[in-house]
């Protein structure tokens, strides 16, 4: 997923688009039906591929070879075989495990280091503060490809290639400019008096960070967390390059990319594996949609 620019606005109100029901379609009848028709078509079109994936992953091998996924609607015949095959032969469980082992620490570290960096950048006065901010803005859009040649050599040199901590290191470093930027605006909107009050109450800088900054930034940290997790979980390029030669099962994206090329297992298990790979991010986005929306808008919208 692409990373978006701009620093966060004031903490966005809790509803992005959710919860507005007033001011709906007006105008003449046929126009209204046209609006509904276009919207429904749009939504259907966007949903069909996901439905196709789910149904394909559940259909028996014989059905899949003979007819398209939509035939499961009039002729429902479902089986869990594909999922069993995916686990048995495609190392999906191992891959999901590797993906988790990459994504969870990456997420936590991105959040922590982003809060630390954003707090220092927003709340401390020092020469070079603007320069650093501008540098980070510029780095927001750096294509990852520019980093590959030197880092592959460096990783080989210090023995980080093929290791999961190596992936953490890369993904955290790469996501930090975005993280700092998402948090910047939010932390800047915490009233200065709170920090001063805490200082007069006897709190050290570290204590203020732990007792004031961290708890107050929870909502925006959740937003950053979802986005960081998604990027890490969905990343193909970096694990593809940096996990080479590892004895661990490849992360799920790398595993899938490899499976597409070889058609020996058939469509079903591949679809099952793919559905399993999208299940975690889908559940995450659906259950934490508000934070996800805030992350996207906070990282992008301005003006």
């Amino acid at each position: 997923m692409s990373k978006t620019a701009r620093q966060s606005a004031v903490p966005l109100s809790s509803h992005g688009f959710i919860g507005l029901a007033a001011d709906r379609v007006r105008g003449r009848g046929h126009l209204r039906w046209l609006v509904h028709a276009v919207v429904l078509l749009f939504v259907l079109f966007w949903f069909v591929p996901i439905l196709a994936l789910l149904l394909s992953s559940l259909r028996p091998q014989a059905e899949t070879a003979a007819s398209g996924w939509w035939m499961a609607l009039p002729r429902p015949a479902f089986t869990a075989t594909n999922y069993m095959l995916a686990f048995d032969q495609l190392r999906v469980a191992g891959s999901l495990g590797t993906s988790l082992a990459i994504a969870i620490p990456t997420t936590v570290l991105v959040i922590l280091l982003s809060v630390i960096g954003a707090y220092a950048l927003v709340r401390m006065n020092f020469a070079g503060r603007t320069a650093i901010s501008l540098l980070l803005v510029a780095l927001l859009v750096t294509p990852p490809q520019i980093t590959l040649v030197p880092l592959l050599r460096l990783y080989n040199l210090v023995g980080l290639s093929g290791t999961i901590p190596g992936i953490w290191l890369y993904q955290v470093g790469f996501t930090l400019p975005f993280g700092v930027f998402l948090l910047r605006g939010f932390i800047a909107s915490i009233p200065q008096e709170l920090f001063e009050s805490a200082r007069l109450d006897g709190a050290s800088e570290l204590r203020i960070f732990r007792s004031i900054v961290l708890p107050l930034s929870r909502p925006i940290m959740a937003s950053l967390g979802i986005m960081a997790f998604l990027w890490s979980w969905n990343d193909l390029l970096i694990p593809l390059l940096f996990m080479g030669g590892s004895s661990l099962p490849p992360p799920i994206t790398v595993n899938l990319a490899g499976l597409v090329a070889q058609t020996t297992q058939g469509q079903g298990p591949l679809m099952a594996a793919t559905f399993l790979s999208v299940l975690v991010p889908l559940v995450l986005v659906l259950s934490l949609q508000r934070h996800f929306v805030r992350g996207i808008l906070g990282g992008a919208v301005k003006g």
Binding site: L194, R199, L200, I212
Partner: peptide, 20 residues
Amino acid sequence: VAAKDRDIAMVFQSYALYPH
């Protein structure tokens, strides 16, 4: 002497209560 070590209490115009 750092603010935290002065043993001075302050009431701010905005009150600066910790919202959490």
